[in-house]
Amino acid sequence: MTARQGSAWEIFRVFLRLGLTSFGGPIAHLGYFRAELVERRKWLDDREYADLVALCQFLPGPASSQVGFGIGLYRGRYLGALAAFLAFTLPSAILMLAFAFGASLFAGPVGEGLLAGLKIVAVAIIAQAVLGMAKSLAPDKQRAAIAAVAAIAASLFAGSAGQLIAIVLGAIAGYLFCREDAVSNSTNLHFPVGRRTGMVCLVLFLLLLLGLPALAAVTGSGTLALFEAFSRAGSLVFGGGHVILPLLQAGVVAPGWVTGQEFLTGYGAAQAVPGPLFTFAAFLGAVSTVGPGGIGGAVIALVAIFLPGFLLLVGVLPFWNTLRTRPWAQALMRGANAAVVGILAAALYDPVFSTAIVGPAEFCLALVAFVLLVSWKLPPWIVVLVGAAGGVFLALVPVF
């Protein structure tokens, strides 16, 4: 399946809507992406999408943003990748910057109900993604078993470590048990990245990771120190999302650039906005006492935290294009893709379902959202509005 090339403006419009409506964290974002880009627009199919998700789960960086960047690259080359990143990131980054300047967001029962409703919608979105991906990526007993084992591994080993273990085990199982018809099931997802470009990006990634700390120390520049702290966090985190918080806390709270209270306040606000949690960096950069602060600090922190993951993704892609055509690599990916289904299933239970569904009323709202998505086939952004309104209603008029 070869995607028709799209314009940067088309990609920007689609990802801007996703950036305005994708609540619930990185796993939920993958569900939103699948609903909009795989099911509705058919820019790529489930196997191609799962290949990209599995690769991004292997790499450090913001996984959902890397997937969006990769889809933009595939659809519209480098301008498309930039358009996808900016559109998906700007809404939450602007809201976090506004919060840093004192704009009070989501306060009181209405705001709390709105946030609760958005979490409930995330349950329906991820449930739909698990159901749809299981049909195409785990259709036989071997891959269904791999998905189940992956879900168990991801549940027993919390955080990104569990996800990596699940994908590695899935890939090994795929190599052992899913080698039949590997060639006939190959996909044609080709990224427009040459080997020389890939090598340059890998070198830049290593320079940021290894050379920037020394440069910041030698120059004594607060701006470089700020860039290095956020770049280090973006380089070392696997899976993205909430896993970044300990690294950010060590980078800005421990040296005294941001107070612990400011950190927790900003983190709370980050739960109420759509888009990637990594835009929490905009708030931290704006309030940091090191660096320019304000808008300048926010821009520096945002660029620094996202750049390493994108460099690494572009650096790996040209070699990935070659490897994935080999029969043994296809077998590995069949197992890894099935493991992705299991990881989504585990995330559907914890933390998504366990934190969002706290009573029968919340369960009923999630069920309504699921039916609207699966049976009525409404666009996710409409279901987000329904869920948000339902959450506010439940907060103001408790029914159970």
Rank of each mutant, 00 (worst) to 15 (best):
V358G: 15
N337M: 12
A356W: 07
F353A: 15
P292H: 00
V299T: 12
M333L: 15
I300H: 05
A304Y: 06
A331Y: 01
G297L: 00
V273A: 13
L323S: 09
P360E: 07
R334V: 08
P292R: 00
V314T: 14
T265W: 02
S288V: 14
I295K: 03
G335T: 11
A338E: 08
A282D: 02
I305F: 09
A269T: 10
V341G: 01
L332E: 01
P276Y: 07
Q330T: 07
L317N: 04
L311M: 08
L344W: 04
I295E: 07
G296F: 00
G315A: 08
V358P: 00
L311V: 07
A298K: 09
A304W: 04
F319H: 08
A270F: 01
A339P: 09
L311P: 05
F353W: 15
F283D: 08
L332V: 05
L313R: 01
G335D: 07
G309D: 04
L348N: 04
V303S: 06
L332N: 02
Q271H: 05
T325D: 14
F310N: 12
V299K: 00
V303Y: 01
R324E: 11
P360T: 06
A304R: 03
F363P: 04
Y349F: 15
E362T: 11
A281S: 15
F363S: 13
F353D: 07
I300N: 05
P318M: 08
V303G: 03
